[in-house]
Design a protein around this nucleic acid. Sequence first.
DNA 1: AAGTGGTCTAGACCACGAG
DNA 2: TCGTGGTCTAGACCACTTG
Lengths: 242, 242
Amino acid sequence: MPADQSPTRFQPLYVQVKEHLLTRIVEGYWLPGSLLPSENQLAGELGVSQGTVRKALDEMTAEKVVVRRQGRGTFVSEHTQEQALFHFFRLADAEGVSPAPSSEVISVSQREATLDEEAKLELKSGEQVALIERVRLLAEQPVVLETVVLSCANFPNIAAQQPLPNTLYTLYQSQYGVSILTAKENITAVVADKKDETLLKVPKGSALLRIERLAFSIDGRPVELRYSRCTTNQYSYQIELT
Amino acid sequence: MPADQSPTRFQPLYVQVKEHLLTRIVEGYWLPGSLLPSENQLAGELGVSQGTVRKALDEMTAEKVVVRRQGRGTFVSEHTQEQALFHFFRLADAEGVSPAPSSEVISVSQREATLDEEAKLELKSGEQVALIERVRLLAEQPVVLETVVLSCANFPNIAAQQPLPNTLYTLYQSQYGVSILTAKENITAVVADKKDETLLKVPKGSALLRIERLAFSIDGRPVELRYSRCTTNQYSYQIELT
DNA sequence: AAGTGGTCTAGACCACGAG
DNA sequence: TCGTGGTCTAGACCACTTG
């Protein structure tokens, strides 16, 4: 029934529909926050039944690519500040609540990527990266020392974005069209160094969480590498395993 | 159409079906690993359409309560050793691979629950808890010092289970009918104490990950509290945020 | 009132697994 | 060959949002 000029043949129809819609979103045909055509319109355009479109959209909802609201329609997901924080900022106190973090930028700079950065961000040899270093505060106390590494090719002239917002992911989305939906984190324990002691105001010899995060764009490319060093005397990293 | 004697009325049919099936599983009517009736049989028994049963089972599949295999049927989830490790053991090396851990039991004991344990495990005042203390090794090197806290009421005479298996969750399931599907973890960084230095063979002043895990049974009750202290010089805690 | 997504049904055919 | 879940369709009605 369908045209079947999709990238992947021999796939269930609803998977093809899903990939078609995903491609349109990734290419910016539908921007974050915008309203998609209704199920019936899409079904008509693509020559499949409404139920098949629904199954594709249901999976995209589960993956948080779109948001569906009864009576209103289906929308491309948007990073609100709250969503980004709730999803990616995992520090909270013993009751599981976290005051809204604020940020103090320490430095913004640029240099050639290290080999490790090249590998993790899938950069060409010798590419330039931007570095953002900042301290994040909870209840006005410094808690996290954070270093963000971005490809200058993906995020041109990011240093000029002033002031940098507290949640960078909303900036990536609004200024660079990059939606971050997933990330991998790698957590170790380290002893605070001199810089940590100064900026986080912790005693010599303190233990810190070191979190290395690689964040992925909606199309699956790694786009941001972020190192966080966190004091955990007031807050802890909380996660659900499901 | 349906009998509608379900616990929650005014719910979509497929939610009622799901809760009905879940109840049967929780009560042990269908044991882990056993085959459920086919979609059509269930639909007939419950007086709903096959598509409604499918939607309920699809959600239960997403929640890992059941496993579906084309051509064979739908089975109640079973903890295999591999699944339990893959799901709940988050330590791996830089390449993301983890050698199979082994365990050395340090002690098994029993005492009255602390107030903190009572609160977290939802115990009555003064209940007894069992404590299992063990060191877990990766590639024959001690990596984790682990303390497991269990209600003696839920897990009677667990000390007699000898030898304790490497993956306790399979024991909970086979001996006590407790299936653990989800957990919450709370991670902080601590400085190694004397005991850590001895048992994990780390130098004085080392930083360790301290992981507090509260694991939940299939019916949502908290059933196990586990404290882990991990060296992260060879391995790191790895997690995906989705 | 009109349009949207949410639920529910019924029936068709396909792909897989086991006897 | 048979029974299973997996896919796909078509149509009905409901619940919610907007004008």
